[in-house]
Structure formats: structure tokens, C-alpha cells
């Protein structure tokens, strides 16, 4: 199976719609343990991404992902801007000039993105961050190469997001709360869950066609 520019554009547009719908929910999560701007920041950033990519014709996936990353860097005020921005830029470098990729290539690009997030945020697994969703999902995708079960991706992503509830934050604003951060889903893990669920939804559809 190949993932091309049409699929990636569709994914980013769907992700944008989801983030607009869930803006309040992400804000609520962030108000509990952060500074309350995650929903607004993500909604603003991806709205700009949506406008940018809708009006641009791309020859390569690298160029599409790079534009997405640069837009997020510029338009998102909080920590999520440089983190998601770096992720898309690393994925763009990994994919380069290709106009479509295999699932194995896609998993590798997402792994490069994850490494970028880890380096930028200096966080690791179980710190109660977006990494708690990214790392296990990408691990699953890499193991299953071309035969990824997208329903399993959705299930796993949801499960790992829910699991951040029980963790004590060690990074970001939530770390100031220490044990009081327990009992709340990490907002970055929640937006990351949308990231993977929307990707899975699009790629599930592609298989059916």
C-alpha cells in the first residue's frame, strides 16, 4: 500500500476539523494541569495549515510536510508549536522528494518525528506527555510494516492516551503540580491521539477503495 499526497492532505484536513471540534475539550484538559492554551493553539495552528495546503499544489510529500511544520512553528504560540512543528519537519526530511511512500516508509518518518519531539522536549516515555501516545503507536506500526491493522492503531492510541491519566507529570507546566497531575489526561497525549486516529481513519478508507 502506498500513501500519497492526496491521503496526507486529507489526513491533515480531517485532523484540522477534529481539532476545531475538540478545541474546548483540549482547553479543558489543559486548564486542569497546564496553562489552558493547548486547544486554542492547536486549533489556530492547524487552521492555518489547512488554509495553506488547500491552496497549494505539492509535487512531493516532503514539501507538503515541510509547509505544515513551518506553519505550525509560526502560528502556534505554546510549546506545541515547536514540538509538532519539529515533528513534521523531521518527517519531511525523512520522506524527502517522494510523492508517495510505503507504510514502512511512513512509520520510519513518524519515528524520525518522534525522535525530534523527544530531543526538542527533552522528555521520555511515562513523563505524561505526547510521547506516551507516539512511542507505543509507532512501535506497533514499525513492527507490522506493510500489514498495519488501523483499528488496532486507533485502539492502542486511545488506550495509551487514557493511560496518561494515571501518570505523574515530569515535563512541562504540569510538572509543577507533581502528584496533583494524576487523574487528568495529558492534553498533548489527547491531541496526539487525534493525530493518529485521523491518520488511521484516512488510511483505513484507502484500503477499502
Amino acid at each position: 500500500m502506498e500513501v500519497g499526497i492526496v491521503e496526507v492532505k486529507l489526513w491533515l484536513q480531517k485532523l484540522n476539523r477534529k481539532l476545531q471540534q475538540e478545541k474546548e475539550h483540549l482547553t479543558d484538559l489543559d486548564q486542569a494541569i497546564g496553562d489552558g492554551d493547548h486547544g486554542l493553539n492547536m486549533a489556530r495552528g492547524f487552521k492555518e495549515v489547512s488554509i495553506k495546503i488547500e491552496n497549494t499544489d505539492y509535487e512531493t510529500l516532503g514539501a507538503l510536510l515541510k509547509d505544515t511544520g513551518m506553519t505550525l512553528l509560526t502560528k502556534v504560540g505554546g510549546a506545541s508549536g515547536p514540538l509538532y512543528g519539529t515533528a513534521f519537519l523531521k518527517a519531511a526530511t525523512s520522506i524527502g522528494d517522494k510523492s508517495s511512500v510505503t507504510l514502512t516508509d511512513l512509520s520510519e518518518a513518524l519515528e524520525a518525528a518522534l525522535e525530534g519531539i523527544k530531543a526538542r522536549g527533552k522528555a521520555n516515555l511515562l513523563d505524561k506527555t505526547m510521547i506516551d501516545v507516539w512511542e507505543p503507536v509507532i512501535h506497533y506500526m514499525k513492527e507490522n510494516r506493510e500489514s498495519i491493522d488501523w483499528d488496532e492503531v486507533i485502539r492502542l492510541s486511545n488506550e495509551k492516551m487514557e493511560a496518561t491519566k494515571e501518570l505523574e507529570a515530569r515535563k512541562g507546566r504540569a510538572a509543577y503540580l507533581g502528584k496533583r497531575s494524576i487523574g487528568h489526561i495529558d492534553p498533548g497525549a489527547a491531541s496526539s491521539n487525534y493525530f493518529f486516529v485521523e491518520l488511521a481513519d484516512v488510511l483505513k478508507g484507502v484500503i477499502k477503495e
Partner: peptide, 13 residues
Amino acid sequence: GGTESGEIGTDVF
């Protein structure tokens, strides 16, 4: 200081 659109935040560029 602030974002490109003048809101609270930081802008790498």
C-alpha cells in the same frame, strides 16, 4: 515576545 499575531506566546522566527 508574543506570537506573530500579537498573542501571548513565543515565535521561533
